[in-house]
Design a protein around this nucleic acid. Structure first.
Lengths: 209, 209
DNA sequence: ATGCCCATCGCATAAATATGCGTTTGAAGT
DNA sequence: ACTTCAAACGCATATTTATGCGATGGGCAT
């Protein structure tokens, strides 16, 4: 029996889910609430295996709910429920550590499978959501072009990114400060910048490391 | 009929897939090669709808194959095939724009569904892979703590991240350079740094914007 | 109304950075 | 043998940053 805790502001939906899960026989609903303000205490009282969390709830949203829960507990599986699949919420929910993301309009069997899947360590997602997740990833990498930095130059640049001054770079790489200058000169030319902070920004944005 | 192009260095595997797809009746295999060096020309000759691409191929890997294809064509769907699911390859493949990621050990029906899914705009992934993708996302956000920057301070910091000098910040925000200094002083204190580049690095790493 | 914080500005100065013009050495390639 | 190039170093100097110690005015809250 998988112990399920449910948060959704619609009584109707909660009842429908309860009916569905009870009918299956593999689940035990240990709690069902219309808001997730008390999520952390609920969890310590009820010890659920899986939490179904609606995204759109008044006052405390499902996103905040996830954040609250994850500050205390990293192991409980959380599936987000939503009616919309075209939302920045997807990004936030995942960022805060949700384990799955299911549309409410999914077939009952799909919801049941999602709970079982997440319980076993999977990450159930509707097709449209999985697509968006991949696109977020793809959009993240700005065609990392190669600036042709030498090994040493990369080391120096990394040191700058770590917040070091010329002096500190020289010390940590055991070279003279004038050599550091030379390297940085060359880095600037290759990256087409003319200040330390611009170089650092470019290094981080374009992931040259 | 979904037109499928297949790259895999194992003849045995290619034959097995051919058999599987032919048997289904919904697919037409328009090409089948043991390397993806000529991928771009293959595509313009054969006009596939979906490409199945093995990750581990000699010489030109599947990752490079994806990169090559995506430079020319953004609409063809690409599914990566692999025996391992615990690999940095997942990240790279997705980054370069793969649409799905399927383990070779998956059930035949799962592979068929994956092709149909990706053809319809989905993003088929094995459960273990979906989990890893979500974890990459979750790991990306380092608990963005709030440094209590004021609105103006954020504007100034953003301008620094854009590579501007004090002078340029002053000009773009239409305030005096001394005011810029004051803001930056306060930013440094709040972020606990003492140089422009360190502030920029922290802003980007901790996503304070 | 009294304080507190934000945003604005000023001046001064030590430290760091950016950049120009050089040199030497050694490894890799032709 | 010759060229090319990364890597190391030096010196000089204009500019930029970092930071100390100020100030004024406007909201907002108690």
């Amino acid at each position: 029996m998988i112990k399920v805790l449910l948060y959704d502001d619609s009584n109707q939906f909660r009842e429908a889910i309860a009916l569905l899960l009870d009918g299956s026989g593999d689940f035990e609903i240990v709690g069902s609430f219309n808001n997730c303000e008390t999520a952390t205490t609920d969890i310590s009282m009820l010890h659920p295996d899986v939490i179904l969390m609606d995204i759109d709830m008044p006052n405390t949203t499902g996103i905040e709910g996830v954040r609250m829960i994850r500050q205390k507990n990293d192991s409980i599986k959380i599936i987000m429920l939503t009616v919309f699949d075209n939302n920045k919420n997807i990004y936030d929910a995942i960022r805060f550590g949700a384990n799955g993301y299911v549309l409410k309009k999914s077939a009952p069997a799909a919801i049941i499978n999602a709970i079982k899947d997440v319980f076993e360590g999977g990450a159930p997602m509707n097709s449209s959501i999985a697509t968006q997740v991949l696109q977020m990833f793809a959009g993240m990498s700005p065609a990392t072009q190669n600036y042709g930095l030498s090994e040493k130059e990369k080391e120096v640049l990394q040191s700058l990114v770590d917040g070091n001054s010329y002096k500190m770079v020289a010390a940590s790489l055991k070279i003279s400060i004038d050599t550091v200058r030379t390297h940085i000169r060359n880095i600037y030319e290759k990256l087409q910048v003319n200040s330390k902070s611009a170089a650092v920004a470019k290094a981080l944005k374009d992931r040259i490391l």
